[in-house]
């Protein structure tokens, strides 16, 4: 197990190396550069050239890459051209928001999706099955931003039940030792703040979690249906096990194998940022941050952010693979 984890972590090195080259070349292949965003209408060829020189962008690409990677190895991701803050600080400030939102979205998808898929898989053709099939297709088909605006309009604007923007009410001032607002509220003992942060999470989490929900429901349904026809389920029935034991211990446990993979992949995807959801709900996470950096050609931010997210993605998938070994003994021993 440990050997497997170490080997996977070592794999990060070639992945990051390849990715860094791709990103480095990609941002420089975009039309325009940071000077366009910085200077705007005041731009003259001379001023632009001066800005480029100031950030070392006039040097050959391989030289730029070499000095950039030299710093990255030491943990220095450079300074944002727009905000003049270290990229690592910027990421540290925004990543907790993304983790919070992604966790809430996945939680929503898992808690609703697995039971729904399970019932649908056990009773194919029932009204639960048909409703969940139509719902899943709708959930996948509807654009996230459209769903986001719809939810915001109905529940925040019309009904006023839940807040529609931000991570916390502006009137609440509280400490943020971790950057996870719900957790911060609990840690500092400021429970109203935690409750408020939680309420701010609901709508974006539903908007963001809808596609994973649809996928998890479908996969669970298919897996449950398949496992229900396995011989060992018949064995469990022949042993006279109660319906509950047959369902939980024999069917669900085996059906969770493919579902775990999907949950992991989806978590990885959500953690790499949810640009549309974060924009609609003005939720300041990695997604909106990275999108802004692309518009302003903030090269250090794009590079650092993508490398960071790649590491996160690989780590999440490593965790999924390790958890797979816990659920499936066949993986553990081979």
């Amino acid at each position: 197990m440990l050997k497997f984890a170490v080997r996977r972590l070592l794999l990060l090195v070639p992945i990051l190396l390849g990715l860094s080259i791709l990103v480095f070349l990609f941002v420089r292949a975009l039309p325009g550069g940071p000077e366009t965003a910085l200077l705007g209408e005041r731009s003259t060829p001379e001023r632009a050239a001066a800005v480029r020189a100031a950030y070392g962008l006039d040097r050959p690409v391989y030289e730029q890459y070499g000095s950039y990677m030299g710093k990255v190895v030491q943990g220095d991701f450079g300074v944002s051209i727009q905000t003049q803050q270290p990229v690592s600080d910027e990421i540290k400030r925004r990543f907790p928001a993304t983790v919070e939102l992604a966790s809430a979205a996945i939680l929503f998808a898992v808690v609703v999706g697995i039971p729904l898929g399970f019932v649908a898989g056990r009773r194919p053709g029932s009204w639960v099955d048909n409703t969940s099939t139509v719902g899943s297709l709708l959930g996948i088909a509807i654009p996230v931003f459209a769903l986001g605006f719809l939810l915001k309009y109905v529940f925040a604007v019309r009904l006023g039940w839940l807040p529609g923007t931000g991570r916390q009410d502006v009137t609440i001032t509280t400490e943020h030792p971790t950057g996870f607002y719900v957790l911060d509220g609990i840690l500092t003992g400021d429970l109203p703040a935690a409750w408020d942060a939680l309420k701010h999470l609901v709508l974006p989490a539903i908007a963001l979690g809808t596609i994973p929900l649809a996928i998890i429901t479908r996969i669970t349904r298919a897996a449950v249906q398949e496992v229900s026809n396995e011989d060992f389920v018949r064995t469990a029935e022949a042993k006279g096990m109660t319906k509950q034991v047959v369902t939980r211990r024999h069917i669900l446990r085996n059906a969770m194998l493919p579902v775990a993979t999907i949950i992991g992949l989806q978590t990885g995807l959500l953690l790499s940022g949810a640009i549309l959801t974060e924009t609609v709900f003005a939720f300041g996470g990695m997604g909106s941050f990275m999108a802004a950096a692309v518009f302003t050609r903030d090269f250090p931010v794009i590079q650092g952010g993508i490398l960071f997210l790649a590491v996160v993605f690989v780590l999440v998938n490593l965790l999924v693979d390790l958890s797979y070994g816990i659920i499936d003994p066949r993986v553990r021993t081979s």
Partner: peptide, 27 residues
């Protein structure tokens, strides 16, 4: 149903053809 479940395995037991697929792989 409930009564039948308590007969199965206790009074009448079964062995199936393929012992690989007839055993639960994760238990």
């Amino acid at each position: 149903e409930d009564e039948l479940r308590s007969v199965r395995g206790r009074e009448i037991a079964m062995i199936f053809q393929d012992p690989m697929s007839s055993l639960n792989p994760v238990l």
